[in-house]
Design a binder for these strands. Sequence first.
RNA 1: GCCCCCAUAGUCUAGUGGCCCAGGACGUCACCCUUUCAAGGUGAAGAUCGCGGGUUCGAAUCCCGCUGGGGGUACCA
Length: 515
Amino acid sequence: MSDPASPAPERVRVRFAPSPTGLLHIGGVRTVLFNWLLANGQAPREGKSGAFLLRIEDTDRNRYVEGAEAGILDVLAWFGVDWDEGPDVGGPHAPYRQSERTALYQEHAQHLLDTGNAYRCFCTPERLQQVREEQAARKEPPGYDRFCRDLSPEQIDANLAAGMPFVIRFRAPQEGETVVHDLLRDDMVFQNANLEDLVLLKSDGYPTYHLANVVDDHEMEITHILRGAEWIPTAPLHVLLYRASGWDVPLFAHMPLILAPGGGKLSKRHGSTSMEEFRVQGYLPEALMNYLALLGWSFDGETEIFSKSDLLEKFTLERVSPSPGTFDYQKLRWFNQYYINHILDLDDLTLRVMPFVAAADLIQPGPYTPDHGDFARVREATALLKDRLETLAEAPDLMSYFLRDELEAYDPALLVPKKGTPAEALRALEAVAALLPEINLGDEAAAEARLRSLADDLGLKAGNLFMPIRVAATGRTQSPGLFETLRVIGNARVQERVAAALAALRVLEAAPANG
RNA sequence: GCCCCCAUAGUCUAGUGGCCCAGGACGUCACCCUUUCAAGGUGAAGAUCGCGGGUUCGAAUCCCGCUGGGGGUACCA
């Protein structure tokens, strides 16, 4: 008895329902994205009204983490999605925090009790544990043995009178089958004999996910449930709960799981797993959104770059794949690099780089606007370095020789080109030092002409003159083009740095060569 | 163990019976550009479409079995 393909609803109401137990997992963010795109992109395109709401599922007081909710909302806003209803903005179905809705769940649990769809279970956690152990010893599948399913009214009254704590369990059918229609997978058939009598209301009066979720999705008029595939096994119970309550069953679409590179769950061991971590590591929300959209969804198999508005224009739930995907950190880095180098304009990129270089004390702290005193300097450095920035967090290291007056200590041996000698490098840099006061580094072409002819005069290959200069000016063997680099560092600092390099080189040359 | 989901190159994917001895992207390799490193350009390698049976004139595409991977099996979500 599959649900007759319900007529396409005129409105699409979807939700993301995180529990405030810590940081927001990257997989959750992908679910948010697809929900948001369905409500704000596909639905309007199909002439339906769309709404995306946020609901906080804080029914587990043991795992509740102070501040987690605020963190989740904050990082979602940073990511670039918004919500029409939620704990912070309110809405017609407030409150949007389950801990503030417990009366509603208790009421409904009572209703299920009254209609015979649920029963009180007085089993202690200890007994439950013991049952599981015995089942394991007998190699039987674990599960509640339904000990309290058919207690007599007298027994129940006696237990109640004795003040025994209890939970309320769902009375799941034990025969027949339940079909869950999934928008990505079609019908999934479950034998009711395998179903469990789930706990609906805990002994502390709080609901479990199963109850709260079904009650709220109904109350909040949710039309499409987009959630992680880890919920597939309990989906038939949810369907049964809707039916037992006499409610319409929403449409389900279980998003494919995101796996770790080696297989299994994505965990710290493989790298970052939370949105907050990617944020501090300097990933752009645009790149994250683009990468995440393509993990499980595709447009034509060819197009790779999608802006937020492209996604709004092109996303369709039907093109989400049901098969799990592996999270590829390398490809995320590529997207990030691509957005930094080719998509963001320079002013925008500069503004995003600033907090990172400020955190490394390379510039004054914010606010970060084009009026910030260091904006122009950072902008110049960014212009030269953007093609090698994979994440914003790399900026402080890459830019330090532009933004700081003093060079960090470096090995003077680097001043000597690979096939050259210290004496040669010394001679070259001495000539450079002598020439520098006459060169206007602001004119790259002229500076290049002067230094190239100097190389000729010295009988050196250009590279063997340029490398010592590069190292003297930056302390590194790798930098952007030499002449643009010198231009941005400026004549005065270049001269100081060359003088310092000369001194170091003299010490090096005087020292006994030992390989 | 039991239940369920999934299955195209190392990874993300296109492909819905013939246009596919399989297309795009990341990664890898080579070359070009070049003052270094990147970026960029060009090109290459890499998939018996997990395996075995069917159905069909014809299958990556449909069906069955197997195998593999993953998820669930809490008074957590």
